[in-house]
Amino acid sequence: MSIILTNISKNFGKFAALNHINLEIPEGELVALLGPSGCGKTTLLRIIAGLEQADSGRVVLNGEDKTEQHVSHRGIGFVFQHYALFRHMTVFDNIAFGLRVKPKKHRPGEADITQKVHALLELVQLDWLHDRFPDQLSGGQRQRIALARALAVEPDVLLLDEPFGALDASVRKDLRQWLRNLHHELNVTSIFVTHDQEEAMEVASQVVVLNHGRIEQQGAPSDIYDHPANAFVSRFIGQTNVFSGDDQDTIWLQSSGLPINDKPGKTAHVRPHDIDVEKASDEASAHAVLKDWQHLGALIRIELVKNAADADNATVYAEMPNEQFKRLQLNRGDKVSLRIRNAHWFH
């Protein structure tokens, strides 16, 4: 089911949480609403769900204007940040809730409900927990039960508010993969909110970057990473080195191999992996001094200090595979020559 938002605005007092948001989400996508805290992403999700009312704008689900529809009639499944499992009900009753509160003529029989709940429990691989209470579950289990509960009513759209926010790092990693696979299996249009760019990149098929109540960029993860629309996105997604476009920096960048004809912007953003590092053959070709390095698993992050007469002391980061770094046999204090392969220029 497709989602079209037009001109959504929302103010809390004088604070503009959302500012004329326009967004189209095609059917079957798994979309991440990504942004720093307070950027309005949760508010936007709640407006789509009908839990919050926009001050202006329309919410169109599958061609139908649902702006005035109550949350209980929108056909959405909402997974709350802290799961909001019903504490006084067993896991089974939690999942069955949505089926049992249907109007009599649409309500399935108790046998059908049982069958469906068990199918959902199997889908989330927790059938053995059906008679537990929420308090007796781990965070990851609660998360999956909350998801099963939302899926029970067969929503056209699945909305998840910070689905991994309250989980331990290791559980989070597993659940990300699991959510991706589940989405693959069910193919229901899904939107989740996150402030973690890694999570958005790893899980989503589409990423919407929000800041200060506006959409900064929308696109596939690789698009956004490779072609950030502006400085905010570039800085927010992945690591980046920021160079001011003043003369010194420009000269230093040029000498480090970055082709600059007719400076295209005020600042240059360079990804660490777009910087090649080699031992300098002589004093003249040394662009930087190696200050330190850290292991990031397969990659090594190298801290460099620009080797320029009156350079600021800002650290420049470069990354390279572990193996390659070993081959270079670099030590702290070594003079190195750089080759900067790519940069994004922003105003």
């Binding site: 769900a49 009908g50 839990l51 109550h70 949350v71 209980s72 009639h73 959405i76 499944g77 909402f78 709350f80 802290h82 909001a84 499992l85 019903f86 504490r87 809730f97 949505g98 509160v101 249907k102 509960r149 939302a150 029970a152 009513v153």
Partner: peptide, 16 residues
């Protein structure tokens, strides 16, 4: 009101 919101999002009416 999260649990109550959850109930509503699952289709419950106010009384339920």
């Amino acid at each position: 009101s999260e649990e109550e919101e959850a109930a509503l999002s699952l289709g419950a009416n106010g009384w339920q």
